[in-house]
Design a binder for these strands. Sequence first.
DNA 1: CAAAATTAGTTAGGTGCCATACTATATTCA
DNA 2: TGAATATAGTATGGCACCTAACTAATTTTG
Lengths: 196, 196
Amino acid sequence: MANDNKVWNQNDAVPSLVQSKRQIERYGLDVDAQAILVATRLLAAGTRLGHASEVHFARFGLSTGRYRVLVELEDNEGEALPSQLAENLGVTRATMTGLLDTLERDGLVSRRTSAQDGRQRSVVLTEEGAKRLQAMAPEHFARLEAMVGLLSIEERGVFLDLLGRVTQGISALTDETIEPDKPAGESRKKQHRSKG
Amino acid sequence: MANDNKVWNQNDAVPSLVQSKRQIERYGLDVDAQAILVATRLLAAGTRLGHASEVHFARFGLSTGRYRVLVELEDNEGEALPSQLAENLGVTRATMTGLLDTLERDGLVSRRTSAQDGRQRSVVLTEEGAKRLQAMAPEHFARLEAMVGLLSIEERGVFLDLLGRVTQGISALTDETIEPDKPAGESRKKQHRSKG
DNA sequence: CAAAATTAGTTAGGTGCCATACTATATTCA
DNA sequence: TGAATATAGTATGGCACCTAACTAATTTTG
């Protein structure tokens, strides 16, 4: 029993409504406790998701980021520029360099200098990289499917809608200034979603 | 324009249904494309949430983990054991040591050796730590509230329910083996939620 | 055309978190 | 009582990702 084995306890770190209320009262703030509860649960879920994702991909010798690079390459006929990849994945070029370093070391991609532009280095998905994706696909997708398995088809649709709006709301955490409260239920007309 | 300024583009990295379908078809798998879409969007949201959370707390000179330590201390009359804190926050003791190191360096907590048990070190929320929490509370909670501001009251309730089940589903990513598919909509009677 | 500015990629250094292995202090029990 | 064991906390080293600064190659422009 020398192994502590930190298994995610499911109960830890899931904030309760009373906790939210207590905190709000402590400082005498004028905010809706349920809203705070939802937000807090969401943050906790985000943490768990990130961690679970890494555990998941580690099974296949990948990380979340490296997997996404491989998929992006596959969606691009197996070849792309590092800067393209960084752009599409929403990470910095520096991060992409690191991801590609590891992928190249593992033989899943290869880099070669571009003929046209000496600054560019073309990234190519290797045979081995393609095989890796293929090999992991069944389990990967089965687990993803299982993740939302507690939701019915209709609920998935509802969840997708709500998650979309909440995802937009994430910017409330990162924006420079706080925007005035928008009660929701109206005033929601122009919400550009996706790009292409 | 020397500054690249990687602002989270909102559009990046949000997977589309066609992408999901294409991947599934590529390997001839028998999974529901919408389920995959939901799962994939969720993972993307998780990544963004984690990042946004760090940006948010950095405004107050904290990280997500360090903030949670302070709150946990406050909920505990300002004093607790590192192992307690680690347990309650769902991180390892090693991680807690790191969090406390920084908090102590910044004067927000202090450590003193226990009299009863020489192995234990009691962690105390300092005056300054309490002040920090108080100072950040208005903006912190306002931003959290704004984050779910695009959802109506009713929608928040629905979201909370769905999120709860999805959160349970996260274990599908981390479990050793894949469980057989549970269609949902029935066979869902005994789902213990929370602990207290 | 040479100097200045831009661009692609990388390196260097930092944060957050983790797992493993170690130290020091109890506790158990033979 | 003294050796084996358990426990609390920490140090070490790892990975993912970031920003800022740097190198090399290309484009702009005077």
